[in-house]
Write a protein that binds this DNA or RNA. Sequence first.
DNA 1: TTCCGACAGTGGGGTCGCAAT
DNA 2: ATTGCGACCCCACTATCGGAA
Length: 512
Amino acid sequence: MRTVLLIDLARTSSAVAADPARLAKIRHLAELLSRVEPDEAEIAVAYLSGELPQRQIGVGWRSLQDLPEPRQIATASLTEVDALLSSIKAQSGPGSQAARKDLLERLFRSVTAQEQAFLLRLLGGEMRQGALNGVMIEAVAKAAATPAAEVRRALTLRGWLPAVGAAALTGGVEALRSFRLEVGRPVAPMLAQSAPNVAAAFEKLGGGPVALEWKLDGVRVQAHRSGDEVKVFTRTLDEITAQVPELVEAVLGLSAEDLVLDGEVIALRPDGRPEPFQVTASRVASKIETERLRGTTPLSVFFFDALRVNGEDLLDLPDGERHAALERAVPAGLITPRLVTSDPEEGMAFFTEVLRQGHEGLVAKSPATPYAAGRRGAGWVKVKPRHTLDLVVLAAEWGHGRRQGKLSNLHLGARDPESGEFVMLGKTFKGLTDELLAWQTERFLAIADGPSDEWMVRLRPEMVVEIAFDGVQRSPRYPGGMALRFARVLRYRPDKSPEDADTVDSVRQLLL
DNA sequence: TTCCGACAGTGGGGTCGCAAT
DNA sequence: ATTGCGACCCCACTATCGGAA
């Protein structure tokens, strides 16, 4: 009999969810981790931080409906559950959906109600216990009696917390220190914060010179080269080597044979201007007909960072030195345009220029910052332009989790002057404070109109709301053939009536 | 004592591959 | 051929805790 069973994880998760204090969550998690046996440590770290050792198993929210009754006695071990999930993942070909369902039912029949609830949250991808990677890093450190900084460093290099956590719990700080940057195995990519404008980005980086780089609206790539072998990974560390042969050839064309580079792939038109993001994303996601697609939609790559060049790990070096190494290893045509300046005015001119060329914006970087992979550290700050429109709320959907009982997700419409009707352009739930959620729920119920159901309340088109968004994209889903990208609420406009709302024509202007 | 960095949660549009219909 | 689902590409914003100032 194992000392730690699935029921223990389920109980720990409940305790974590019930205790809002971060330090208490860490205590609960560390207490369990300190009891788990070495061969189950990876599973425990994974499950309690909302991950699966298999990463994905082809089961989502929809497959988790209509599950069997629980049993009364909890006996399931982590190893047993892990084996079942592996066999679910292994199903493929005709009949696989039925086989998956069968195995999933067997799993749920073999556990108690509390374990079922835990597995539902885990497999559904919504832990709702207020603890994921960030809290788990601290819990692993506490349970293994190692500094959290050592865990973070290992996670940067390994990119997968369950593996790092298991190493820490079984081998302590020595095991953590044995993690190295390994060519061919992806590193957790460094992420950026955002700022509303160039001046604010300069301010955030705290004076001194700032490196400004074009922000291209493509797909983030991490390219590894060892001799004749190249591997390419995405931001979530999934391998896409086969989909991006242009990138592979570009890297093989460099003289350095030992490389880890960070950059962006993007589809450019013959005139050099960027294709819409959808075109790049479609090209990168397509696994078949790659050779034909190369002809119609070629990909370009632009690197902006070097993590390793010719046997030297550069992660801990400041940005300026890493970029110098990048410039030595990679020709200028494959490097993201960059300007180092202390002058915000000069920065704004650079921003204007990148937008004129049709690109997304800028990323401002402190030349002193090391590559803090996997953390949205303050070293990188992105700046993008923002559009706004006054739109009409057509309906609202009931929220989930902490928004349960509140009307949350808004259906947004622009006015069609021809018909006098409103054309839906998308939805948003962003930008709403708790106070605004409470207010709009009450207000919406007062103007409810038309067929509503358990998810949605239709409204008389009376409420005008000011919406910020990044751009307009072609939509196969919405009636006007266009949708807003990254829409969020700025404020309600009680001073405006629906007749004052922006029109579909003004939105269409932005599509070009 | 106040401020602010980091984290988790709440969901958005679009596209692909695959299995089922 | 079409549809449904899972996965993954891009992502913004608010509330909260707890350490920093």
